[in-house]
Structures are given as C-alpha cells and as structure tokens.
C-alpha cells in the first residue's frame, strides 16, 4: 500500500539506480584429489601440489578483495563434471584449473582446443567452452604477461580437457613444471616454497590485471 500511494504522489518515478557491477569471482580448480592421485611428482601425488597452490592462491586473491570459489578445499574426490558444475554456478570471470608435472620447464598454460562458437542459451556439455574460448585466450595472454614479468618460462598450448571444455567462463589450465636452467637441470623444484610463492604471486597479479581489464573495481 505504501508503495502504491508513493507512486501516485510521484508519477515521474526517479530512475532506478544503476545496477551494481557484477561481483568478480575466480574459480580455482585444484586438479585431482581423493582417489585420483594425479601424477607422481618427487614421490608425492600431484593432488597435493595442486591443492597447496590453490590454497596459497586463494589467500592471495581474497586478501585483494577477490571472491574465490574452490572446487575442492581438501583431499576429496571431485568428479570432472562436478568441477565444471561448480565453476558454471559461480558465474565466474576467471576459472583456473591447476595442475603440476615433472616434465617440461616452467609454467604451461593451456586453453581449450575448441574453436570459438557463438554463445547459445543452452550450451551443450563438453562443448560449452566454445562460446568462451576467445575470452579464455585473452585470459591466457594476461597470465602469460604476468608470468613473464615475474621472470618465468611460459609455454602456451591448446588441449582437450574435460573439466575445462564444460566450463562457461574464461578458463585456463595452469600446469606447473620445475624451473630448469639452460643445461636442463632443475633450478627450482615443485616442492620449493619460494617457487610456489612466485607462481602464486604472479597468478594473483594476473587475475588483478584481468579484473582491471574487465573494468571491475
């Protein structure tokens, strides 16, 4: 009733306030977990490395005011489809799938190998990333710049990864490999806390840049 009388008294209603900018959300998907050990790295399971990096990165992002949704926060088994579901429900502006390996050198960034597709109201599972792959490439470029600025070796590639291909957000798979010198000897291993901190710091800086590019505070 109050609303009706107010409207009657003021036929020219004031313009509705501008909608608040969408919350900037980052999804961190620490790959593997629980029964899925991932690869064996230095006698330790890949799932432990990815979780450790995810926890570290989440702390850095939250400290900078970025909302973080994690697909797992403990050593739990999470189905690949469930990971994509979590990411899609979060309506995130960036999704990072975190991996680790002993092969290669530095940081490997992978974007879905799907070709860009027009966004549709109902995106098919396993191909949903097609509508986002252009933005995913942009996110990979931003991360690449931040990592290079941090003095890291970066390789870029495209791959078919079930969890990422089903995500409806700019998604990049980040795989951390040991840092190697010119003689191919490891100069910073996966278990090196300083290396982990540098990687997490560079990724956090990249996501801050991504947020700025998105025009969000």
């Amino acid at each position: 009733m109050v609303g009706v009388s107010a409207a009657a008294q003021a036929p020219t209603a004031p313009a509705a306030p501008a909608p608040a900018p969408a919350r900037f959300v980052v999804v961190l998907d620490a790959a593997h977990g629980g029964d899925d050990l991932g690869g064996r790295l230095d006698g330790q399971a890949e799932k432990a490395y990815t979780l450790a990096l995810g926890v570290r990165l989440r702390s850095l992002l939250q400290a900078r005011g970025i909302s973080v949704v994690a697909t797992r926060e403990s050593d739990a088994t999470v189905d690949l489809n469930r990971r994509a579901e979590v990411a899609n429900h979060a309506n995130a502006q960036a999704c990072l799938s975190l991996h680790a390996t002993e092969s290669g050198n530095g940081i490997h960034l992978f974007v879905s190998s799907m070709a860009p597709a027009q966004p549709m109201h109902f995106a098919a599972w396993k191909t949903a990333q097609g509508a986002w792959v252009t933005r995913s490439l942009g996110l990979a470029g931003t991360i690449n710049s931040a990592l290079l600025q941090a003095g890291m070796t970066v390789t870029l590639g495209r791959t078919a990864l079930l969890a990422v291909d089903s995500m409806t957000c700019p998604a990049v798979a980040v795989e951390i490999a040991p840092e190697r010198g010119p003689d191919k000897k490891v100069s910073a291993g996966l278990g090196d806390p300083d290396y982990q901190a540098r990687v997490a710091g560079a990724l956090a800086a990249a996501l801050l840049d991504w947020r700025s590019e998105a025009g969000q505070p």
Binding site: H99, E102, F110, E175
Partner: peptide, 9 residues
C-alpha cells in the same frame, strides 16, 4: 606414460 597436461597432449 608420464603424467601431465603438456606431455600427454
């Protein structure tokens, strides 16, 4: 086969 996104791809 070594486990990893890059090596498997």
């Amino acid at each position: 086969h070594p486990s990893g996104l890059e090596t498997e791809t």
